Amino acid sequence: MTRELVVLGTASAVPTRHRNHNGYLLMWDGQGFLFDPGEGTQRQMTMAGVSAHDVTWICVTHFHGDHCLGVPGVVQRIARDKVGHAVQAAYPASGEEYWRRLRHAAVFADTSVITRRPVAGDVTRFPAGPVTLTARPLSHPVESYGYRVDEPDGRRMVPGELTRHGIAGPMIGELQREGSVTLDDGSVVSLEDCSVPRPGQSAAFVMDTRLCDGVYALAEGVDLLVIESTFLSEEAALAAEYGHLTAAQAGQVAQACGVRRLVLTHFSERYSFADEPRFIGEAAKEFDGEIVTARDLTRVPVPRRRP
């Protein structure tokens, strides 16, 4: 199954010749979480080789235009392409009026597959197929939420222990399904006897925010952290004023939370591709793990599961 981030746009408030407004599709074992579809997302999806049929969740962090003006196009594409599966829409409950405007921004043959999932309060959790989707509040001039995807913890079978206990063939599947098997001699072998814990994988999506408790809670221990780094440290005061992070702050979060792969995005239009080494350099002073500066239409895999 596929677990990767498809980057659709990486600009902040103003798109540039090389960076579209925001848009991020996290593909996860048949689920497709479309985060913050900004203006132009529908076209960017076509350019990236993904379709409306890949989307099972639309997750909006807040209702500034660069994070939501692509909603009408995506909704209408879901309708036009006759997507048959359920599509859930998560967004701040306080922005219900804006959601309704975006959802019905123009005349089209509507669809009934989209279900509203407004978020409010300190923690909101939704079951989402094989994972749980969690929303937590961030710190921005308007109400904003970040999102996190978590696979449940499991267990990894140990071949040597299976052999030692005489477990083979169909019995292995029974052991995994039932949690124990009874051998011919009447002895019972439990799943714990033949396996070790396997932590579930996770990813977090943190957009427009100052440093706050929600940022750290979302990022704690994730395999993949997609986080805004709108400014470099020389503009730290501006970042704080407008409710944004610097690349250095993104690195601090990743280091403190034990993140495995850090993806920097949501870059101010004042920066060009030539500035990417500066973003990596500032984040790397704080974080000793892998750092990616996102570019439109690239794909970033979720790191392989820990051994």
Score class of each variant (00 low, 15 high):
R177P: 04
R103M: 11
D275C: 13
A217V: 07
I78Q: 02
Q42C: 06
S229A: 15
Y91M: 01
P197V: 12
H62E: 11
Q31S: 06
G200F: 04
T209Y: 06
P118K: 14
E151Y: 02
Q44G: 01
G9Q: 00
F205Y: 08
E174K: 14
I78P: 10
T246M: 01
M207N: 00
Q255L: 00
Q252G: 02
R136D: 04
L211G: 01
G221N: 11
R80H: 07
Y216H: 07
R304L: 12
L297A: 02
D288A: 12
W99G: 10
S139T: 05
T10A: 07
Q252L: 04
K285I: 00
R278L: 13
V87L: 08
V119H: 12
F35N: 07
L8F: 03
R43Q: 09
G160A: 09
T10I: 08
L224S: 11
G49S: 10
G169V: 13
P92R: 12
A203L: 05
G49W: 09
R270M: 15
Y216M: 03
A283L: 07
V71E: 02
L297S: 03
Y91D: 07
E178T: 15
T182I: 11
N22Q: 12
V302D: 09
T246S: 00
G49Y: 07
H64M: 13
P277I: 14
V188H: 10
A284P: 09
A250Q: 06
P152I: 02
R116G: 02
G169S: 10
E143S: 10
P127F: 05
P307H: 00
V226W: 03
D54W: 00
L5C: 09
D54R: 03
S233D: 09
A236S: 05
A256D: 05
A239L: 06
G160I: 01
E39Y: 08
F273Y: 08
N20M: 09
L175S: 08
Y24Q: 05
A203N: 04
F108H: 08
H266A: 15
A168Y: 11
I114M: 13
V87D: 15
F287V: 03
E241H: 11
V6S: 03
V215C: 03
G281L: 02
L245H: 05
I172Q: 12
I291K: 07
A274Q: 07
D288E: 10
R295Q: 13
G30H: 10
G289C: 04
E161G: 00
T163C: 03
R116D: 15
I167L: 12
V83T: 15
T41L: 03
A106L: 03
S268M: 14
D213F: 04
R155F: 12
C59A: 11
K82R: 11
A284E: 11
V158R: 13
P307V: 00
M45I: 10
T16L: 11
L211Q: 02
V158L: 14
E96Y: 04
E96N: 14
R270K: 15
V74Y: 00
E192V: 15
Q42I: 03
V75E: 08
V215N: 02
R116E: 15
H64E: 14
E143D: 14
F35W: 10
P37C: 00
P37R: 00
Q201L: 01
P277W: 10
V131I: 15
A105G: 07
T182E: 14
G84K: 13
P199I: 11
P137R: 07
V71Q: 01
E228L: 11
I167A: 10
D275Q: 09
D153I: 10
T298P: 06
